[in-house]
């Protein structure tokens, strides 16, 4: 089932970076994620390229296929159309930016095939 949209995507939500700095969700920059992951001992930023966007099980859901990391592992996620992803160098983007803005007052670009999103993996599973 699609992942419901959590409250921290609401405009004005306070986000704590890895160094303790507080920022509003709408003010986050690509560098904030990169620098936070550099500090983290467990988490690593990966580049996840959008390969496909298909309809989901319900009318307001989409299945997004990503190519993750250097190994280009194929990973599919089903989310609501308003679910925002952070695109490198661009910022928040969703499959239905109008709906994201309507529900969460978060300005969004349209998420498209070829966009490179910020994602996380564990630094090492060993």
């Amino acid at each position: 089932s699609p992942v419901a949209l959590p409250p921290f995507f609401m405009r004005g939500s306070i986000i704590q970076l890895a160094d303790g700095e507080l920022k509003r969700v709408e003010d986050l920059k690509t560098e904030d994620f990169i620098q936070s992951a550099e500090i983290s001992s467990e988490l690593k930023i990966d580049s996840s390229t959008v390969e496909r966007i298909d309809s989901g099980q319900s009318p307001n859901a989409v299945v997004i296929q990503f190519s993750v990391g250097e190994l280009k592992a194929q990973v599919c996620v089903e989310v609501l159309v308003e679910y925002p992803f952070f695109v490198f160098g661009q910022g928040w983007s969703s499959c239905c930016p109008d709906r994201t803005t309507q529900l969460f007052e978060l300005s969004c670009a349209k998420l498209c095939v070829g966009d490179v999103c910020v994602s996380l993996t564990l630094r090492s599973l060993r």
Partner: peptide
């Protein structure tokens, strides 16, 4: 006011590890 950790905003896309 609730404060959320930065990593909660980012999807955890874990490829299957093959080693």
């Amino acid at each position: 006011v609730p404060v959320f950790p930065w990593h909660s905003l980012v999807p955890f896309l874990a490829p299957t590890q093959s080693d």
